[in-house]
Amino acid sequence: MAKPILTFENQLRIGEYAEGYRLYDLRCGNSAGREIKASLFFFLGMAMLFMLMREQFNILKLPVCTIVLLICIYMCCFFIYILPNMAKQRGERIYKSSHLLSEKYTFHVHQDYFIMQNEYESLKRYYTEIHDCIETDTLFLLIGGTEKKLIVIAKRCLEQEQCETLSHFFRKEMVHQYRRTRFRRRKKK
């Protein structure tokens, strides 16, 4: 077997897995496409508001429009704030229910695939199976495959140099799948 490019150990904490699961859910879970769903309810709500302002007092239309408007406001909040939070809580529940997620894994990163293994599990995954590689300030997420679809790597477990090597490698190896999440940079005074 060829020598790995990088070898490191990784042990996840509950918060890291939950954050990873939240991003996974936003990308390809229940929360995917939430902006479109929220905007549909937003436009429906706006239409109701317009009807309320335009119509003269009508005992039938007023309560119906008000109820629909309130439902639309709730659905917008649900898709934008509540659903991602629910995904994070679900991630926490999954972590608590699993004995394997809290175990320490050793990763061997090769040119075409990586192997993650510990006492109980060994997984070899080719980069062609991965359809999303997301890098955040604290995590690497590898999404894909037919089983164990979400693999989370905490940057905390890597040294600075290893982190840069891995980031550069993923960016080079998975050109179309790789994306770096945006974050605000503070202006230097």
Partner: peptide, 13 residues
Amino acid sequence: ELHRISVPREYVY
């Protein structure tokens, strides 16, 4: 071919 798991029965949810 690519994946192997061997866990004690207590690890099954």
